[in-house]
Design a protein around this nucleic acid. Structure first.
Lengths: 129, 129
DNA sequence: TCCTAATTTAGACTTATTCTAAGCACATCT
DNA sequence: AGATGTGCTTAGAATAAGTCTAAATTAGGA
């Protein structure tokens, strides 16, 4: 974290640590709830400050998916997303599961710098029910 | 609109009409501002009620893209999206510009019902500057 | 025309997030 | 060690997007 010019405080460490261990794209609220069950506690403002700082430093990604809450993801590998329409869970899909796309022909000279695929459907767990 | 069981009020007509003519994925706020410059006016609650009714009826799509505000789109053809990182504009990309994707191999038996591609980069207008 | 359920409305409310101002904490200089 | 400064944390106030409520209005069928 220091490499990107951020002081490493216990709160920041706890937030990033939680995100790295989590595969569930937690919201700020989930992160807050999880942290405040143990040490160190962090105020709401700190959670948001930290998440914004981490995002600006490129250490986490902020994603919006089908609703108005930000979700955070410490997976920096290139990947796609899968959203289950039953349980609403958001899951990473490794880039290799799909492979490189043919460069799309965009009429008016837009430059595509990167892309991601958002897949929707029913996840394995929900299908079993 | 009647076909989907909705009474056709002037407010509803105005909202849908505005969306159909618009290619810019307006937010509720933009729609509200546009409508309230002319007849019929619509309260904030009506704008939201109408947008939700139209979305539930499948006449418009609600999309969230990189921030916490809903944008609406009356383009019902299958399409992808392009987001300009300079002007933040959100644009539809016709499905044919990319073509069908190879079915991704999703480890755990998820069922992909559909997908969209979100491309990011710089749009033609912003490139010219 | 009349009726009724559906719709509209203003304004209160909720929820997610940001801002503010005050206090801490730690690194640095002396 | 003591003084200083910058950056971090905090509680709580403020904002923004969207929802809810209850009363008044209206679309569309009988």
């Amino acid at each position: 974290m220091r490499e990107v010019g951020l002081k490493l405080t216990p709160q920041r460490f706890a937030v990033l640590d939680f995100l790295v261990r989590s595969r569930e794209h937690p919201t700020a609220d989930k992160i807050s709830a999880a942290l405040n069950r143990r040490f160190p506690r962090a105020s709401r403002a700190t959670i948001y400050n930290t998440l914004n700082a981490l995002r600006d430093a490129g250490l986490v990604h902020e994603v919006y998916m089908d609703d108005a809450v930000a979700r955070f993801d410490a997976n920096l590998d290139r990947h796609h997303h899968f959203v289950c329409r039953v349980c609403d869970r958001l899951e990473d899909v490794p880039f290799e599961a799909v492979g490189e796309l043919p460069a799309p022909r965009l009429g008016a000279g837009h430059k595509v710098e990167n892309y991601e695929i958002v897949m929707r459907g029913v996840c394995a767990a929900c299908r079993r029910k």
